[in-house]
Amino acid sequence: MPGPTAGRATGSAPSRIPSVVWLVGPSVLLMALLFGWPMIAGIVQAFAGPEGFTLAHVERMVADPYFWPSVRNTLLLIVVLIPLQFALALAMALLLRTNPRFGGLYFYVWAIPLAVSDLAAGLVWLAVLTDRGYLNSVLAGLGLTPVPWLAFDNPVSLFVAVLVAELWRATALVLVIVVAGLQGIPKDYEEAAAVFGAGPWQRLRHVLLPLLRPSLQVALILRTILAFQTFAVAQALTGQNFPLLVGETYRWYTILQNENVAAALALVVLLLSMLTSVIYLRTLRQAQT
């Protein structure tokens, strides 16, 4: 008789919540509250006008004289910064892989910037680069003419200042990821490559880099997204003289008190981040099938 059996099964089932709900539930809830809801609110805010949907905020954002320079600066920073950071981090990680004396100490010293808040890092570099800062003091002491590094009419040195500060601050993140990735690669592969005639460059190109690909992919996506969000360092060093997208968002929100345009700018950052992530994931996809 199927009746009673089915009845018992359906009778006990609803009272039991599957364990998967307990496992995934909290993080889904948190993501929805702290990430999903603000994002939707932001999107709504960017396109909401007194009479419903409007593109007025987006038009206002684009018409602002600082908008295109901030897009240009952000992209320029990423294009120059990221390759430099990866080259540096890779070189540092490879040095550590040779097990030098005090290698552990170097690693910790190199990782210190990770623990420094970005605004503090910006202020430190400001102290170095400002008109009467450490760098100019040294130059004066050597009998050289001090340079106004952070002057608004000197865009190249402004850019270089932000670049150097960001390089110092954020290369450690790439380093940590690459070091972790390298630790997962057995030495045997390099040794085999060496025995079979590969020199140091060939070993790097044909063995280490391909095996590091998953780590590099993670580091690249993380670093690029974070670079789109570069804010505090540039703000501390240059104020509005070197506008970046997130800095502009901040300006619209606090100084100009226009939440709608600020939301539109935040959306631009989000779209750019998503676009590059997709491009990275597609171009770096493992060829293993």
Binding site: P186, A192, F196
Partner: peptide, 15 residues
């Protein structure tokens, strides 16, 4: 050194 070698772990490149 113009050698070749077979490793205990094989060290066959996975990529």
């Amino acid at each position: 050194r113009n050698l070749s070698m077979v490793f205990q772990s094989y060290a066959v490149f996975p990529h």
